[in-house]
Design a protein around this nucleic acid. Structure first.
Length: 461
RNA sequence: GGUGGGUUGGCCGAGAGGCGAGGCAACGGACUGCAAAUCCGUGUACACGGGUUCAAAUCCCGUACCCACCUCCA
């Protein structure tokens, strides 16, 4: 079975046919680094990370580009309010973002280009558009350059909209525009803006419009045509529509498939700084392990809206601990083969919910079996493709963990021996007292056919 | 006004004409000194009203409610 994915442009699940056999070029719109990353941001990253991992696993040579937008109105505004240079603010937020990705085991992209590093490429693209009659410098001398939507008949194609039905843009002085829907490719520098936030151009100093960077960078690193373009649903319009229009108008076929992940909301509302309901990654990681948060995200289909709640996250974490418990009991095994049902689920538009169900089924079978090892090998393989391998060094400090474990093991040995003695003498009150004492330290003792086993109590974190 | 998505059991979340995905919780049983873990069992869920069909959560028509996007947004 071949990989199939839902293409937003055609609104149907299609077989994935790469432009070049065995290779996949993917461009995902990353973040504008203007504030701390929240759960919603990370969902997009995790979803496309799963795509990347799955394609790699199935043998594709993947080139995965995820950009960072490090110059825009919000960054300028935010930096100014903090009394910090815009580039310093962007750099700090970019580091926060990198930390969040690392905490969730989001694999690094092939390349992570910065908008500010690609101004010449954008200028080239804009000049081509002007030459072809699809863009024009504003008549009002502002230094702005606009894309002429009326010059491009298929404008609106990606989101199936008619130009006349659209509301007008408000990102620039409409007097400079031929049509209110025209969007900025280049923004002339305003006196109020810092000199450092402007670059020389044939139309005077200025900075890039939002959409042009992705067209320029996708073209540079993936070529004139590439396979998959992704991002959050909110980017469909205007961002992706505009990217496609400007790239195609410049003569590039651009993306073959469009993938969009749905939102995570809280209390029925999207996460947003202005609503004050953002769950920043650092704050969630105070209460949950990164692997638990990732599991929560992966367990829902990427196109399904998720209503975030700590109750649901608790459930996911409890479920994941069940899987971990099975693996601990099974002992060390190397990842094995993927069950066919898992492969089928993943091939069907990244059906992670069904894939997770296969993991649970395998865990149950393994718990029943005399020899859990082959099942554990399968479970490990499945977790691994999903970026959820518990022993992945990405989850941090395993070496220290092991040393601590050994230390606790030694300390506990004496107590457990006393308890075993008491139990052998049917002195259960002493046995339970010892167990209670250990429990007071946050350690649970379970009696198994192989003797007592201890583990840290399953609290959050 | 335009475009797109949604409403599934106590809860979370899949599915897209016929076999009850899976998880969490609950209850019963097995195992256990008691627990824990594990296993087995227990649910007649698909917003509402019509319709099509031998058969509808799934298709069609209508209604209600919710959400997203329409040039800042993952």
């Amino acid at each position: 079975m071949t990989f199939r994915l839902y293409d937003t442009a055609t609104r149907e699940v299609r077989d994935f046919v790469p432009l070049e056999e065995g290779k996949a070029g993917i461009y995902v719109c990353g973040l504008t680094v203007q504030s701390e990353p929240h759960v919603g941001h990370v969902r997009s990253a995790v979803n496309f990370d799963v795509l990347q991992r799955w394609l790699r696993h199935t043998g594709y040579d993947v080139t995965f580009i995820r950009n960072v937008t490090d110059i825009d109105d919000k960054i300028l505004a935010k930096a100014e309010s903090l009394g910090r240079p815009w580039y310093a603010h962007a750099a700090v937020m970019q580091r926060e973002l990198a930390k969040a990705y690392a905490a969730l085991n989001v694999a690094p992209p092939t390349y992570e280009p910065l908008a500010t590093g690609h101004v010449p490429e954008m200028l080239e693209l804009i000049e081509t558009l002007i030459e072809k009659g699809h863009a024009y410098p504003a008549a009002d001398g502002s230094g702005d350059v606009y894309f002429d939507v009326r010059s491009w008949p298929s404008y609106g194609e990606l989101t199936r909209q008619q130009v006349d039905d659209m509301e007008a843009a408000e990102d620039a002085d409409p007097r400079g525009k031929r049509d209110p829907r025209d969007f900025a490719l280049w923004k002339g520098r305003k006196q109020s803006e810092p000199e450092t936030a402007s670059w020389p151009s044939p139309w005077g100093r200025g900075r890039p419009g939002w959409h042009i960077e992705c067209s320029a960078m996708a073209g540079k690193y993936l070529g004139s045509a590439f396979d998959i373009h992704g991002g959050g649903v909110d980017l469909r319009f205007p961002h992706h529509e505009n990217e496609q229009a400007q790239s195609r108008a410049a003569g590039h076929p651009f993306a073959s498939y469009w993938m969009h992940n749905a939102w995570i909301t809280t209390a029925g509302e999207k996460m947003s700084k202005s609503l004050g309901n953002s769950l920043t990654i650092p704050s969630v990681l105070e209460r949950y392990r990164g692997i638990e948060l990732r599991f929560y995200v992966v367990a829902a289909h990427y196109r399904s809206h998720v209503e975030f709640s700590f109750e649901a996250l608790d459930e996911a974490a409890a479920g994941f601990r069940r899987i971990e418990g099975f693996l601990e009991r099974a002992g060390e095994v190397a990842p094995g083969e993927l069950p066919a049902a898992f492969v089928a689920a993943m091939d069907d538009d990244l059906g992670t919910p069904a894939a997770v169900a296969v993991i649970y089924d395998t865990v149950r079978d393994g718990n029943k079996a005399d020899d859990p090892a082959p099942y554990a090998a399968q479970v490990l393989a499945m977790l691994d493709v999903l970026g959820l391998h518990p022993a992945d060094p990405a989850w941090g400090a395993r070496a220290d963990d092991q040393r601590l474990t050994d230390a606790v093991d030694t300390l506990l040995a004496g107590l457990l021996e006393q308890r075993a003695e008491a139990r052998a003498n049917k002195d259960f009150s002493t046995a339970d007292a010892i167990r209670d004492r250990i429990k007071a330290a946050g350690i649970e003792v379970e009696d198994t056919p192989d003797g007592p086993k201890w583990s840290l109590e399953a609290g959050t974190k």
